[in-house]
Write a protein that binds this DNA or RNA. Sequence first.
DNA 1: CGCCGATACATGCAAGTTACACATAGCTGC
DNA 2: GCAGCTATGTGTAACTTGCATGTATCGGCG
Lengths: 136, 136
Amino acid sequence: MPEAAIRDRREMKPRLHGELLSTSLLAFLKNWNAYGYQLTQRLADSGMPECDSGTVYRTLRQLEKSGFVSSFWDTSESGPARRMYSLTQTGDLFLSGWITALQNYQNVIQKAMTDWDMFTRGGVVRPTEMEEAPDA
Amino acid sequence: MPEAAIRDRREMKPRLHGELLSTSLLAFLKNWNAYGYQLTQRLADSGMPECDSGTVYRTLRQLEKSGFVSSFWDTSESGPARRMYSLTQTGDLFLSGWITALQNYQNVIQKAMTDWDMFTRGGVVRPTEMEEAPDA
DNA sequence: CGCCGATACATGCAAGTTACACATAGCTGC
DNA sequence: GCAGCTATGTGTAACTTGCATGTATCGGCG
């Protein structure tokens, strides 16, 4: 079953997707106007999970459709034309929302991993105690 | 164009997807054995971005296929049978990897938003200075 | 008993997303 | 001309997801 093997490999390795990728791009554009090729390399250099450049271009177009970034063709430099992107106000708002959500996300994860209880019951019960006494 | 409107709404609101969802589930299972219905509610109660229960069930089956969790039918309690999940060693490892990746992710995002440069050049340049002097 | 609602898991489908390969084009050096 | 880098984009098959719906178990209630 070569199919399963492929999926396993994908699951095995963190990759940069969807909203995580969108947020990255918006963050890079926060104080900086840039074009796709640049952003792709930036991502790669940041130690971020890998990401296909085609996906970056498509994501940028999407973000533009959603109104989070705007772009224009830059022909001022030599070489192929570049599509320069910049963050819009809407994009800035969206970015803030996601940063907050991610911070909350990390809190929950951390809490779940250290002291998972206490938001279902009132008291504090250690995981080890739980395993000794499943339902006392 | 009703199509675009739908996408816009989806993009507007953070939702819990893919690897973010997987990581959440694994984290909840770190010190705790649980079944799908339980995990779904836990997610909802945590202030996490919304998430469909069908997606949770499917994700859990996926995680099992990948070897990150294992499950068995629990018929000890009254009511419909429950599929009890627990974290495997492989899953624990994968979880650690993703936690690290997410921490790195946040660092990069934060850095990008405050002082984005200095990993392309050597010096420190403020974004404002950049806009004044594009390529001095 | 029949019926309802809550619990618990699962799937069908249409819409959307992604990795990989490939296509296009401008410019530089030779 | 042509090889190689820069820069953007697309075709396609595989995959994921939200929503609606389906199945089944159990407890309560008249």
